[in-house]
Amino acid sequence: MLNAEEKQLIEQAVRHYEHPRAACLEALKIVQERRGWVSDDDVRDVADALAMSPAEVDSLATFYSLIFRRPVGRHVILVCDSVSCWIMGYERIVQHISERLGVGLGETTPDGEFTLLPVVCLGACDRAPAMMIDGDLHGDLTEEVIDQLLVTYRGKKME
């Protein structure tokens, strides 16, 4: 069930467009922001809110890469895997994070703290290799920087 706040935010988003369907991705993001991911029930709720069918909503939810249709950890790490970061050592970075967290790309740590995902070019090629944790960009990554970041985020609860 969508709560009152989510409903209100979705209604607000609907007003920005000629047709309510256009607010669908915004609605999914509103839900995801609060629950971490979009469950089947959430798909149904968003569909109801926008007079769409669950299949129509899921057709969008599964197309777009930033909508998570499976549970994620408290912190989502998006590591840029595109060309500039690759040249600057993306593989080393991923390997390091993987070792530290004990999970590979697309996986969540058993304690539910981190999900590690690849992402296309973050537009931080001048600070490659780069990654994003919970929407914050971190560039010029080295093993040391990563270790520090992981410590910081581990202590942090999701806002």
Binding site: D40, V43, S53, A55, V57, D58, S59, T62, F63
Partner: peptide, 19 residues
């Protein structure tokens, strides 16, 4: 019909119901 659609992207597009 509302209950059949296309899901996913690139070479992983899937045609069916959402469940």
């Amino acid at each position: 019909g509302k209950d059949l659609n296309v899901f996913g992207a690139h070479h992983h597009v899937y045609f069916g119901r959402h469940e």
